[in-house]
Design a protein around this nucleic acid. Sequence first.
DNA 1: TGTCCATGATCAA
DNA 2: TGATCCTGGACAT
Length: 274
Amino acid sequence: MPEGHTLHRIAKRLDTHFRGRPTRSTSPQGRFAIEAAVLDGLVLDEVEAHGKHLFLTFAEHTVHVHLGLAGTLTFGVSSGSENTIRWRLEAEGARAELRGPAACRLLTPSEVDDLQSRLGPDPLRSDANPAVAWDRIRLSRRSIGALLMDQTVVSGVGNIYRAEVLFRHRIDPFLEGRLLKPREWQVIWSDLVALMRVGVEVGRIDTVYPEHEPEAMGRPPRQDPHGGEVYVYRRSGQPCLRCGSTIRKRVLDGRNLFWCPRCQRRSRRQAHLV
DNA sequence: TGTCCATGATCAA
DNA sequence: TGATCCTGGACAT
């Protein structure tokens, strides 16, 4: 579940149902028990998402949550087992349960500042400045595919948005950042803002243009556990929805990268370097 | 029942 | 670069 849109969506729901109200905190699993006891009974004052990080402030205490790859935060009555609930937060008529997070801990204000200062601009935040990311990208010999996944360059983008935004603008994922044109970065950024806002609203990642939607093409809707209509993510071996070429997959920095070798053809800019 | 894999990230070597 | 952490779903046995 967890690219940045998921965390902003969670933050909104927490804000609606818990902020400004006294809360109960428990840790059925026990691994957050000491901290939960400190928080128990306090009013939730502020909820904030930055990239894939979530911050909940209760008086002078701030909880930092990062879902990692396996984490989930669910609302209402849960279906999972009790002994995997790291943190249960309750208010009158509301309940949230956190399972399998990579991080769930109390941070001091300076630790919060340190963490947030290391994050690149988040396309879902109004205070984001894409020029800060561009200053890193335009000087880098790393590929744009790798740079988009680096949370200190851009925060909130994950493996799906990375693959999809590059496909949508026909950009070769292996193109070095320093060879990207300013205009291309502008387009990538503004598209991330648009795509991720939709993601927050609908709770899944949809990236196909209307003419490539299942109904328009007479193809069956996508069957994939993560949901959402996409062009390349986890579609390796299948035909490109735009050109029919076979979608490819390769491990880059330990993650599966998906792309269309024809739509995202290696540009002449890069050709002499290969 | 067991193994592998995942929308992520850190740490050791 | 590889091992590791966390949970749950898909798939094989």
